[in-house]
Design a protein around this nucleic acid. Structure first.
Lengths: 214, 214
DNA sequence: TAAAATATACCGGAAAACCAGTAGAAAAAA
DNA sequence: TTTTTTCTACTGGTTTTCCGGTATATTTTA
């Protein structure tokens, strides 16, 4: 690997040594790229970046032992706004991808991307474009399904009741513990189902878990 | 890389090309190891194994596009009982690790394991020992908390019914779709609740989600 | 092949959930 | 301080679940 002055400088941040090895191996023969260094923690990389801010592109994993991808992204953009960020992650949830792009990431690849795709995306990003792998593009462009229905707003009491329902309690037993009428609990239950657009308790609990409310 | 007759034969099965690259790269210089081939699906590997069963060790990812780790493990042990299995996974839940070991895996590494650890574990396994990385050992030895409740075994039909219950369907409607009696569905429902030790549908769904069965 | 697991089906009764309303008091927000 | 939201409570009726059995045919495993 030759390190010409005009080579783009690249850094890898991933807590999996195996992934780092893999990326390095895939990029070994690439013209015009110089892998400066690799890091397994966000902190180590950010310290490095403060000393040496002339990095063109960072291949960044989202799940790191110390900081999460959002934080790392923000720090990068503060200290080195011209450094491009290409996320390489296993997360394929639309919300996470969106979040990273909002933090200033220039691209997003899944770890099962091919070598060709990786190289292609790196060049796209270096040229100032947004680069998403085919799979990510598919996720981003396909109809949103259940993402339209935003998370319903629950009151404190409703959350409390929801939790107790999920624990398998009956309305009567919940009413008992909360020292309210059974009718009250049943009303809460009904309102919960309405808010989640669920036709019964089973669907309610499933929705609630899906939307991380349980 | 020399391929001596006495070299141990090794196969990599992982749906992430990058991980395969990384593993290959890490094992490149290793004496006594011969990387025969790599696969990104369980099915492809199993077909290969039936043709050529003289493989000493398989580096196996649990999450594959077609089959899951448990199924692949079982098949390996049926067709090539002497082939050692070293799991290389991101899952660090005690229950999953246990499950793989019960299926006959000889070792378990997290993907963030170091190259040294990987090589060491491969040799341990080839020598007939159980090899767990430091992190896995820690998980396995630390106090169990609430993990006593192991994941109940569900039959196909039960999984199917469970899914439909979670979707908010009533027993009658499920029976209708499956073209069986409502009584049958109710029996399945009852057995599901018993297996999960749940007192009603709400608890059942919560448990099922918690144990990643939904 | 024998034993175990799975899928099927039924009964009757009790308990709980679900539906569609209404409505007053208390607390929070405007 | 109004207005809105939240929490509370009730009626009356329908549907569904839950519980406790039992039982047979089929499929899988040992």
């Amino acid at each position: 690997m030759s390190a010409n002055k005009t080579d783009a400088t690249l850094v890898i941040v991933d807590d999996h040594p195996i992934v780092i090895e893999g990326l390095q191996s895939l990029l070994q023969g690439e013209e015009g790229l110089h892998i400066v260094q690799s890091f397994t923690t966000g902190g180590a990389f950010l310290s490095f970046l403060k000393e040496q801010p002339h990095i063109d592109i960072v291949l960044l994993d989202i799940t790191l032992p110390d900081l999460n991808g959002v934080e790392v992204c923000r720090e990068i953009k503060i200290h080195a706004p011209d450094t491009k960020i290409l996320i390489i992650s296993n997360h394929n949830e639309r919300s996470i991808i969106m979040q990273m792009l909002q933090q200033g990431a220039s691209g997003y690849l899944l770890k099962n991307a091919s070598g060709d795709e990786l190289v292609h995306c790196i060049h796209e990003v270096l040229n100032g474009r947004i680069a998403l792998s085919a799979e990510i593009t598919a996720i981003m462009t396909r109809p949103v399904q259940n993402e339209l229905k935003q998370i319903p707003h629950l009151t404190k009491r409703e959350k409390q009741v929801l939790g107790m329902i999920a624990a398998g309690r009956t309305s009567a037993s919940i009413a008992d513990e909360l020292c309210v009428s059974q009718f009250t609990v049943e009303t809460h239950r009904r309102n919960l189902m309405q808010k989640f657009d669920a036709s019964n308790t089973a669907a309610l609990i499933k929705m609630a878990v899906e939307q991380r409310l349980l």
